Amino acid sequence: MTQEFEVRDAVEYLILIKAHMLSLEAYSTQLAKTPLCSAGLVSLRQAHLDLRMIIEELMLLSVSAHRDVGEAISKNLQKNYSATQKMKLLEKINPRFFPEAIRVVPSKETGIEGQFVSVEEDHLSRIKAEDFYNKSGNFLHASYKTLTEQEFEQAKEELADFFILAARLMHTFEVDISGKGWLIAGHLNLEEAQFPVVFSARVEK
């Protein structure tokens, strides 16, 4: 597969991530002023579906340079409900599968305008993503037990927290999309009316 197709496939995953992020934001805004009721519970479930899809699209982004691997991972995502197991599988294929939040700072090196550094501000990590994903299962299946008002409010707060953490992660990020040193860096452009953008480079081992 050529570099052009690899980058295009990565952008397609990012477009879906952005769409689910915007949908989650809309549901969170709606839920903030919705009391515990049947309509609120349905919105909560739909928001958790967005949350799961964001994390799954992030997983597929990490193997977007390999269609065959992506197809196998897609089937695994459909069969396996545990985020921990899914991420362990991805880690075997690509140790750097989870995106890293970065930012650009002025470089001290002559001839180089800027350099990437890790973001210190709290953002979505692999561990946090696992936790959010596994917890979301409680809201995506029918249950004999209804949520209490306190549980409902806590769930709304957790969705809002997830949105903030994911937005920080994807504002500017880098990820290996191959497991072989094919890195992309990009911006989700969540607040702009334009597509996500990525830049790619091969890292020599």
Rank of each mutant, 00 (worst) to 15 (best):
M170I: 15
R103H: 14
A155D: 08
L188D: 10
E57F: 01
L188C: 07
F195G: 11
L77C: 06
F173C: 07
A185E: 10
A155M: 04
L61V: 01
K92L: 12
E157M: 09
E151I: 05
L140T: 05
E191M: 14
Y133N: 05
Q150M: 07
L61R: 02
L124P: 11
D176H: 01
V104N: 14
V197M: 06
I127K: 15
D131H: 12
P95H: 11
N94I: 07
M87H: 08
A185Q: 10
L147K: 05
Q150Y: 10
E149A: 08
E57A: 01
S62I: 00
L60C: 00
E121C: 08
L183G: 00
S82M: 03
G179T: 05
E151A: 13
A155G: 05
S178C: 02
L140Y: 00
V119F: 09
G181K: 06
A129P: 10
D176N: 06
W182L: 11
I164C: 12
A155C: 07
D68T: 07
E151Y: 06
G186E: 03
L165G: 10
A167I: 05
S178P: 03
K128H: 12
G70R: 10
V63Y: 00
F139K: 02
G111S: 04
D131W: 08
E113P: 10
K135C: 12
P196R: 04
E113S: 13
A129W: 06
I164P: 05
A193Q: 13
D176F: 04
K108N: 11
N138C: 02
S82C: 08
E91D: 12
D161C: 03
A193S: 14
A72T: 05
E91V: 00
T146M: 11
D122H: 15
G181H: 06
Y133H: 05
R96H: 14
K145W: 07
V117F: 09
G70C: 09
S62N: 03
E192T: 01
L183I: 11
R168H: 14
V117Q: 12
G111N: 07
T172H: 09
T172Q: 15
L190M: 10
K135M: 14
I112T: 04
L89V: 07
I112M: 06
T110H: 09
F173Q: 03
G137C: 05
D131R: 10
Y144I: 06
D161T: 11
F173K: 04
P106E: 15
G137M: 12
G179V: 07
F116V: 04
A101T: 13
A129Y: 02
S136I: 12
F162I: 01
V105W: 10
V105M: 11
F132A: 10
K75R: 11
D131Q: 11
F97L: 09
Q194W: 00
A160Y: 04
H141Q: 02
E153K: 11
E91L: 05
A142H: 03
V63E: 01
S107R: 12
K75F: 01
F173H: 07
L147N: 02
W182E: 03
R103G: 13
H66Y: 02
R67Y: 00
A83V: 10
S136A: 15
A193G: 07
L188T: 09
Y81K: 13
H66K: 03
K145A: 08
Q78E: 13
I73Y: 01
N76E: 09
